[in-house]
Design a protein around this nucleic acid. Structure first.
Lengths: 248, 248
DNA sequence: CGCAGCGTTGAGGCCAATCAATCTCAGTGG
DNA sequence: CCACTGAGATTGATTGGCCTCAACGCTGCG
């Protein structure tokens, strides 16, 4: 949680560039880079913000993976979204006073906090960015919808495959995939929180996926062995990600 | 689907008023009322827009209930959200070119279409409304998150109770509840699409809820007999609805 | 009157949860 | 170098919630 080296808005800028429907002006890029940002480090599993908070700032993920989650009284935990570098997981707090979910670091990660006033000035000075940020929040909503279809209507096998497809594609889009593998240090318990399953069952499903030669999640890496069949098993259609460019 | 009497932006204006964090100016109200709106009627179950469309206009619900849904290849159907009068279910199409979900009339309903250009001019002329509309889309996202918790972590009984809590509260907020009951002409099959269950199981859950004296869904009406116990069964906490005023 | 759509109920089966034990392996410290 | 520890992964046995299949009742309507 310590203050560190001057933060770097690069991931955010790259994200906005990939999201915006127009090419950024230099002025816009400069304004983004000049956002007064306070960086902080979190270790895995640490909460960054919790339900019912009333944040006066938002943050962007600089490195690592962050999760949005909610819990039931009985202790059930449901991860609603994972956030990769460049994402602004709690952008909504700019418009909604009280947070209706919690945010936690999944991996050790660095985030950059920006006060709401600074965001508001930025958007006033660079009004085209409003559309881009708005679009970003709408894409998040689109991801939740697919997630709901997943939770409500796909069995454990397809559901798990789908999660891997999504994460793989998104990490690819931010350049974090090499040799069909990406760093994904999720425990089976954490996976089960996202999938609405138990860790025991996740274990069995992973075994099946491995046995079928689709993917392996071992150690802290996810390796995709047969993308086409994985996609088929998951019924994965990346339209909902609203990516503008093909991932490379 | 026929053209009809001059449409009426009242539900939309009321909604925006209840959402905005400021009091609307007369100019803003007038601008909203002057939106060129083309109204259309849909009968129950008719699609209003479907996945992969590229809409050039959005619509607001004038009367009736509209559902957002997606389907799996196997035919599984998942309703992600219900929309009540005043909502703009596909506002996102203003910023996201291709629709990643479908929209259907749940009850017979009337909607008002507004071309995207008209919305853009409105938002340019009345920039404060940007925040209000943005807020509306963020509230929708908050609803999906609670829905995900529901699908992933609550059993059929609590899940059903929760859906009723939400719909009841929202319909109350737009004045559609009288005597602890509201019109809710959903078949058990439709309910099951929203709950991620089968209609057979929904039937049994409804029986239990009725037997426990919490709610009855009979004919086309939902009656809440014991709000407190219903809320408790559902673990319902209305924070996520982000209502500004207590419903009355 | 008879069909069609919806609600209701029962029997049986399956997927995933639960309970519980064992295994692996990276640390840690003596 | 090895015993010890604890977190996570793996596996088996059993249970239970929800699904599937199937039949029947009800009600509105052409």
């Amino acid at each position: 949680m310590a203050e560190t080296i001057p933060p770097n808005a690069q991931p955010l800028i790259r994200r906005i560039e990939s999201i915006a429907l127009f090419e950024l002006h230099d002025a816009e890029r400069v304004a983004l880079a000049a956002l007064p940002m306070q960086s902080a480090d979190f270790s895995a599993r640490q909460d960054i913000a919790t339900e019912h908070d009333r944040p006066s700032r938002s943050f962007t993920v600089l490195s690592g993976i962050v999760a949005t989650y909610k819990t039931t009284r009985a202790g059930g935990r449901q991860v609603m979204a994972y956030h990769v570098p460049g994402d602004v997981p709690d952008f909504q707090s700019l418009h909604l006073e009280v947070l209706d979910f919690s945010l936690a670091a999944v991996t050790p990660c660095r985030v950059g906090f920006v006060r709401h006033e600074a965001v508001r000035s930025l958007l006033e000075a660079q009004p085209r960015l409003v559309g881009a940020f708005w679009r970003a929040t709408l894409i998040n909503a689109a991801l939740s919808r697919e997630w709901m279809l997943n939770l409500g209507r796909r069995d454990a096998y397809a559901r798990t495959a789908h999660l891997f497809c999504e994460l793989f594609t998104r990490l690819q889009a931010v350049g974090l995939v090499h040799d069909h593998t990406c760093a994904l240090p999720l425990t089976q318990l954490e996976l089960s929180d996202a999938l609405g399953l138990t860790s025991v069952h996740v274990n069995r499903v992973l075994k099946d996926l491995r046995g079928a030669g689709l993917v392996t999640l071992s150690g802290k890496n996810l390796t995709v062995h047969d993308w086409e069949r994985l996609k088929a098993a998951a019924e994965f259609d990346p339209t909902y990600l609203h990516l503008r460019r093909k991932a490379g």
